[in-house]
């Protein structure tokens, strides 16, 4: 039962990834990515990583996907919105997929990593204790990092929104 549900969620993840890779409409590709990201959160729960699953939902599904969809909507859709996701070439895609697939298999085989087989154990409380005790400095530093990022976003925005002010025409005769 448990393995069956795991395999179903894994199949949904692969399906979403395939839609992302092969859809000719860029909006459909983004929605396929959304499906894959949600399903990955389910896989995290099966691997006893509930905090990572919640982070995945909140940050990737709630934040990054919104950013990605806005990124798409900011562009002009192209002439035909049903084929605006061009195929960049089957040969490089196959090559890259093969290389990284073999690399992944090699890493998993040599690192001694195994699937988490033990009983499910919630980790959020442990992380909370660690954040308040051992890792208090990194916890506060993350806050500083976010401040830096917000300031950086503001600076980026400023470059985007600078009004091009025409230099006034200098009148002939004066000076």
């Amino acid at each position: 039962m448990k393995d069956g549900i795991f395999l179903c969620i894994a199949a949904v993840t692969v399906f979403g990834a395939l839609v992302t890779a092969f859809s000719r409409s860029i909006i459909n590709a983004a929605l396929g990515l959304l499906l894959a990201l949600v399903a990955i959160a389910g896989l995290y729960i099966f691997l006893s990583a509930d905090f990572v699953a919640v982070s995945q939902i909140l940050i990737y599904v709630g934040g990054v996907m919104v950013l990605l969809l806005f990124g798409i909507m900011l562009t002009s859709g192209g002439d035909n919105i049903f084929s605006n996701n061009p195929i960049m070439g089957a040969v490089p895609a196959t090559l890259i997929t093969t290389i990284f697939g073999l690399l992944g298999i090699y890493v998993v085989n040599t690192s001694g990593l195994t699937f988490y087989q033990g009983a499910y154990r919630a980790t959020t409380r442990d992380i909370g204790h660690f954040l308040l005790r051992e890792y208090i400095l990194p916890f506060e530093l993350v806050s500083v990092l976010i401040v830096v990022l917000i300031v950086g976003a503001g600076v980026m925005l400023r470059k985007e929104l600078v009004i091009v002010r025409q230099a006034p025409q200098k009148k002939e005769g004066k000076k």
């Binding site: 905090f51 940050i59 950013l67 909370g128 806050s143 976003a153 925005l157």
Partner: peptide, 19 residues
């Protein structure tokens, strides 16, 4: 886009406050 970017950063804050 800018509002979404700022939202994303405060989203990270919420995730860290959660545990």
């Amino acid at each position: 886009y800018v509002l979404a970017l700022i939202f994303l950063l405060f989203d990270v804050e919420i995730v860290l406050i959660l545990p």
